[in-house]
Amino acid sequence: MKKTREEKILTFLFILPSVVLIAVFVYGFIGWTGWVSLTNWKDVVPDFTFVGFRNYTDLFQNLRFQISFKNILVFTVLFLVASIAVGLLLAILLDRKVRFENVFRSIYLFPMAISFIVTGVVWRWMLNPGTAITGSLGINMLLDEIGLGFLKSGWYTDPNVGIKAVVIPAVWQMSGYVMAMYLAGIRSIPQELSEAAQVDGASNWQVYRYIILPLLQPITLGAVIILTHISLKIFDLVVAMTGAGVGFSCDVPALFMYDTTFRGNFFAQGAAIATILLIFVAMLIIPYLRHGLKGGS
């Protein structure tokens, strides 16, 4: 159906406000942040002297930034792998037509409805290891009770664990969401395919391995994108749960950005961190969007 001239104009007018607003409030501010990151702004009063990439070179020599950058990479990989593994497992189990499926599904999904702040505070208490004097607390006490005392750890208070302890609540919160995605994916696969395979003598394992999993690939890709961008931007959970941690073992770039910008007044350096985070998220999202657009056309 061909659009008339009026229709074209009308369509254009309809999308114009959102285009303008997004251009200003999203892309405009991204550009502004990029520009600020190239200036000498390090006081509450702006100083727009151009300094090139000095803020970036300073940043990569900054010990705290190096640590927080390494932390976010570790966090992202662990969070991604664990969330997807747990989510997929839950989805497969629920797909076995268990009784009270609705109840279980809701239980697994519930954590997602909670703010990261709440999760952070509660897990801070639960993962507090306690001291020799107070005895084990929280999760450690539980491990003691059920005879798994050897699994006890200092969690986030131990600089060698640090950010890895923050992965636990993050997975707890997001794996239900991944489960929901996978469950929808599994349900949308035509039953005939697995039935046909079963007629051919395939075991349950083979059905999942060779039929269901390959067909879930697009879901996995979507989950990876969503989880990674949540992970790279993670801030609230870390603030509420651990802060920067012992020797910055729980620090993430977003937290460092907040600290250096609003506490130290190093606005240009903060903008540089924001830009680096943006570049990393973009490296992930842009190929995905291009892939999606191509697929759509």
Partner: peptide, 26 residues
């Protein structure tokens, strides 16, 4: 405030990595 922020970061790191020489240089 800028100095205070960086100062406290150096000391916070020292608690976990108590290297006197490196910290003093920082």
């Amino acid at each position: 405030e800028g100095w205070v922020t960086e100062f406290k970061d150096v000391i916070a790191l020292f608690v976990a990595r108590p290297d006197v020489e490196v910290t003093q240089r920082a």
